[in-house]
Design a protein around this nucleic acid. Structure first.
Lengths: 350, 350
DNA sequence: CTGAAAGCGCTTACAG
DNA sequence: CTGAAAGCGCTTACAG
């Protein structure tokens, strides 16, 4: 009487149910070519035996049903990327897929062939495709592509090296987002509008471009701090605001590359004895958690992180289905969230 | 000349290398019983063919090497749990494991047998064990246990129903953490210390317990707002602070159940024209991102989320190894982070 | 040290 | 609608 606890497999179920293993398999896979009666009977036996099919054995033959969500070159999973991850996972669940979370470090300079990938990607069969977020350089993309994996990137996180690669991407339009914010300020009567954000980062570069466009269109003079500054965004904001107030032209409103920078700006502003929005208006970007709870709740341009995650997963599934002959991209709209940090200065409204 | 692109498998490698498949397999698994020469030769062929072993086929026979990280009953992956996830993933990588991220919804009332789990858990072979975080009720734990999966919970996230279950858990001591914070205030000369946090939540209940203990030990009078209030933590903090200032005894310092509540408190405080820490001292809990960037940088009790994640993964691996005969728990220490929100009131120092 | 063969637990033509 | 058999791509005693 050995404790032959050994796992109950499909053969065992077939034996007890007095059917072939093929029949059991068909029940498992909801095959149409099976009689209701047998189906019911087999199901009963499965329940009785507490049989659980082995996921991996099945996946050798079918798809793995797994997708890798990679956070690249980022020491922390901050709320923005956490939102993307969660969006991806929720959509994956609807599509009967699973999400493996992976942190990858891969410096910019390493040539693709020398990149050592985690076994999850190196081995075949684990995942069907990869979603790339974080700080992604072309070398990593090349390396993963060589593995024959489908890739979808969060487009705004890709640092291109000039020649833009053709990629499946989900992205938001930072140019348009910042135009929207600038127009909003202009419509509120502001004429002296500054922008703050280190344009080394591609997302701030885009925003800066939108900012300049909007101001030029209204014949206003750009006045921006876009140089390299302190590492931390909050510190960058403080630093940049101080530079702005040291300058000749003091703005009535400041556009910030993200909400954390805006927080830093607000610190400096208050430190100078000024109030938001009474003395100076402030607009953020991203709509992170911090925006809604700032002292004067921050008006900001929302980038819907969960929606980006959902779209990434959908696009990846689409590419997997069609074999990925051509690339496509999906644009996720940004949205201006009006809160309390912008002052109405009268003047014309369009 | 068909595009027989079909995947190159181990048999193909063996054929080209003129060895048996067993030999190739041994090379793949770094077996010791193989000559250096054959090994090298086989490796060359593998490279030449671009062969990638199929992860799933291998895992039928060995372990799956996957672990599920579940966020239970939580609509958002906030930074705290994101920290746990990331800690778990980083340790998993060291231990050559992979982390599948899963969102689970499972209301408190459903009896275990009626809980419908995602296929990832329902099927056998996917994951070796599960890490449970979020808002976890006993019904879910029973259900997953019945599947024969090893479980490690983030202990502070488990809502017990009185009779405490025996669980593998990683936890921090909220009682001790809040004692530490209270003692700190007392050592700074504070005598009228309030606590704020809805004790419906187990973590706030523990903290409240510690708070009361510390004050009693010094013959001080507790003065707490622990009732149900607004849903949002920030709003709860505002609301609670207002109640405190409406009361007979106005405290000189306030302990908050978490940093967001502390933020709310600081809002109300300022709104009343008081300053932190000049007029009132404030201490938070958790040390979330917001703490460091608050107007007067928040002194708080740090709960190291990444470390919790790492410990969860380690404990799970340990249980998997030993077969999990008995349960164990790991305590992660909290740490008081001194910043600028507490005023020194003179008086005795121990 | 190496190879032929059995086996892991499943799915899927194929033939009824 | 159903079953026996071949096959998915690997690992691992077993026998040299």
């Amino acid at each position: 009487m050995k404790a032959k606890k050994a796992s109950i497999n499909i053969r065992e179920v077939a034996r007890v149910a007095r059917v072939g293993v093929a029949t059991v398999s068909r029940v498992l896979n909801d095959s149409s070519l099976i009689s209701a009666k047998t189906q019911e009977h087999v199901r009963a036996v499965i329940r009785q035996l507490g049989y659980r099919p082995n996921a991996l054995a099945r996946r050798i033959i079918r798809h793995s049903e797994m997708v890798c969500f990679a956070l690249v070159n980022r020491p922390f999973l901050h709320s923005f990327h956490a939102g993307i991850l969660q969006g991806a996972e929720s959509r994956a669940r609807m599509l009967k897929r699973h999400v493996v979370f992976l942190g990858i470090n891969c410096p910019k300079e390493i040539p693709p062939s020398q990149i050592v990938l985690p076994p999850l990607l190196e081995e075949k069969g684990w995942v069907e495709g990869v979603i790339l977020t974080g700080v992604v350089y072309p070398n990593l993309i090349s390396r993963i592509e060589a593995l024959g994996l489908q890739i979808v990137v969060f487009g705004n996180n890709v640092f291109t090296d000039g020649r833009r690669r053709e990629l499946n991407k989900v992205w938001y339009d930072g140019v348009e987002g910042q135009i929207k914010a600038a127009e909003y300020l202009i419509n509120h009567g502001h004429r002296s509008i500054a922008f703050v954000g280190d344009t080394e980062y591609p997302w701030f570069r885009e925003q800066y471009e939108g900012y300049v466009k909007a101001l030029r269109a209204h014949r206003l003079r750009p006045n921006a701090v876009i140089r390299k500054g302190p590492e931390s965004f909050v510190e960058y904001g403080k630093w940049a605001a101080n530079r702005l107030f040291d300058g000749k032209v003091v703005p009535t409103a400041i556009l910030s590359g993200n909400d954390e920078i805006a927080l830093g700006v607000s610190r400096s502003v208050r430190h100078l004895g000024l109030r938001i929005p009474a003395d100076i208006s402030l607009v953020g970007f991203d709509d992170r958690e911090i925006a809604a709870v700032m002292e004067s709740a921050l008006t900001t341009v929302k980038v819907p992180s969960q929606e980006i995650g959902r779209q990434c997963m959908e696009l990846l599934m689409e590419k997997l289905r069609e074999g990925g002959s051509h690339v496509s991209s999906r644009l996720v709209p940004t949205q201006l969230i009006e809160r309390d940090s912008v002052m109405w200065l009268g003047s014309e409204r369009k």
